[in-house]
Design a protein around this nucleic acid. Structure first.
Length: 339
DNA sequence: TATCCATAGCGCCCCCTGCTGGT
DNA sequence: ACCAGCAGGGGGCGCTATGGATA
């Protein structure tokens, strides 16, 4: 960081502002670099220059990171906006740019001043229900509504209601308009939210950015890592309301409740034999174990017949066993004669 | 300058699915 | 065969932060 290395004397608050702005720009660049990575990643198997996802409009809205506004402060030829020799001194009261046309300058100034406020620690709008505080009255308003349960934004097509307009808008996309602006360029997947697309892209790239610090596992998304950590703690947070048995995942408990305590539980019948399985996944195991084709045939030790399906082989062996039982059976009366 | 608005981003929880290994 | 543990992929929502436009 260059701010501290500059020999020039500056008021402490200005130095702080420099540091905060530079930190912010670093983060913004990370975010933008991330977006660029997403669009430029080109696994060799998938061909060159393939983008992983795009929006329908191919918008220039690369998120509200603010890098655009600030970019006027820097030499665009720089790979990184902040070289070690470049220190950006921003005076909130006498802010000026030289890179903007006059009419643009005013708007930029306004935006930048507004943006810089976000770096201030000052949060004047305090919640009276909890210790939190916010930069703006609108944020506080939303926060208080979350406390009180007041949801002024109601969906016109269902009973759902939300604290913010944005939540309502997203709900409408999920449930009613089915608009999914983020399209995967590798498969047919599309999503309502960019974050979902990022998560999806990892299923193509194999990227696992969330490593477990206790074992070699790494997850593709943060919540999966959190769920995984329960395997280390042994925590079983889901309890069967009937028998109080405990489970690690809600889905596992749900299946337990259904299978153990449910009535008229549907069973899964094997299409090749008369077996019924309580779980679909067990049907899969059953099919693999008994009905899959075996390259190497199994031979019957009694008659030498060859079978490529284990189920057919087992059925065949049954016939030998019943013959054997028949031969060794004795008359049940007192004569004890072999049958 | 405050406010509104749209959007981004992170987190949380749920669902369904399928594999694995113990009984 | 049954069962629980566990991970992958994804849907939906809660909440906050942010930037641009505008009153």
């Amino acid at each position: 960081m260059s701010a501290g290395s500059q020999a020039t004397e500056k008021p402490p608050d200005m130095l702080l502002m420099e540091v905060q702005v530079l930190d912010k720009i670093d983060r913004d660049n990370d975010a933008i670099a991330f977006e660029n990575n997403i669009q430029q990643l080109s696994p060799s198997e998938e061909g060159e220059g393939k983008e992983f996802f795009s929006t329908v409009e191919e918008t220039e809205s690369q998120s509200c990171n603010g890098g655009d506004d600030l970019s006027v402060l820097f030499n665009e030829e720089q790979e990184y906006p902040i070289a070690s020799e470049q220190t950006v001194v921003i005076n909130l009261k006498n802010l000026t740019f030289e890179a903007c046309a006059p009419h643009q300058e005013k708007a930029k100034l306004s935006s930048l001043r507004c943006h810089l406020k976000t770096h201030s620690d000052e949060k004047r709008h305090a919640c009276h229900l909890c210790p939190k505080a916010f930069h703006t009255a609108a944020l506080l308003h939303n926060h208080v509504n979350a406390h009180t349960g007041n949801k002024p934004h109601k969906c016109s097509e269902c009973d759902a209601a939300f604290v913010t307009r944005g939540e309502l808008s997203r709900h409408r996309r999920y449930k009613h308009t089915l608009e999914k602006p983020f399209k995967c360029t590798i498969c047919e997947y599309s999503s309502v939210e960019a974050s979902k697309m990022r998560r999806h892209v990892r299923s193509h790239t194999g990227e696992r950015p969330y490593p477990c610090h206790l074992c070699s596992y790494a997850s593709k998304d943060a919540y999966k890592l959190k769920r995984h950590m329960l395997t280390h703690t042994g925590e079983k947070r889901y309890e069967c309301y009937v028998c109080q048995a405990r489970f690690t995942q809600s889905g596992t408990m749900k299946i337990h409740v259904l299978q153990k305590h449910g009535e008229n539980v549907p069973k899964h019948q094997c299409p090749h034999c008369s077996t019924f399985l309580s779980r679909k996944s067990d049907l899969g195991v059953h099919l693999r174990n008994l009905h899959s084709y075996m390259e190497e045939a199994v031979k019957c030790r009694d008659c030498g017949a060859a079978f490529h399906e284990r189920y057919a082989f087992l059925q065949h062996r049954k016939t030998h066993r019943s013959e054997e039982r028949f031969r060794s059976a004795q008359c049940s009366c007192t004569c004890n004669q072999a049958l």
